[in-house]
Amino acid sequence: MNAITPPGEAKRQRIFRERAELLAREPEQHGAEEELLDVVEFLLSGEQYAIESVYVTAVHSLKDLTQLPCTPPFVLGVMNMRGKILSVVDLRVFFELPRRALSDLNMLIVLQNDTMTFAIPADGIVGTRGIPRASLLATLPTLTGIRGEYLLGITPQRLVVLDGCKLLGDSRMVVHEEV
């Protein structure tokens, strides 16, 4: 019951101290010479991915998805975001990732370049961060096929960075089917 009582004086002091320490910490020194790559980090099928912020216009919650008939399996459907119609592409299908039974898929990341606009769903948005470009490792040799094509690299923290330019420029994304 003491949970609903206001925190005691000692606890308050502790919280204040923690905050003070956090503010007093030196920011990470990446080196001025180092080029930082701004990415948006997100979760998909239990793994952490990231994509360059340059190609991201917005993140949004996935609501009111309308399924489209006569489309390839990776097209989940279309949705209305602030008056714009976006196609939603399921990267799991695209990357041939195994489908986990329970997946939230309640977030949406809108990708855009000069020619193409679409959205990919995500289980959760972690946030934005800067990654030193030098720290990126080349793609793993195990990653072959389509997954290998769209990877920009992997950080030492096992964060998979996707190549937004390739994704947006892929001709397979342009669906033209007649039934």
Binding site: D38, S53, T57, A58, V59, H60, S61, I125, G127, T128
Partner: peptide, 26 residues
């Protein structure tokens, strides 16, 4: 809270797009 979080991410993205000018905003 969730939505605020989302809004914060969007703001960060925007800030990133603004480059050096957006540092404060970030």
């Amino acid at each position: 809270a969730e939505q605020s979080n989302l809004l914060a991410v969007n703001a960060a993205i925007e800030a990133a797009k603004a480059g050096d000018h957006g540092k404060g905003f970030a």
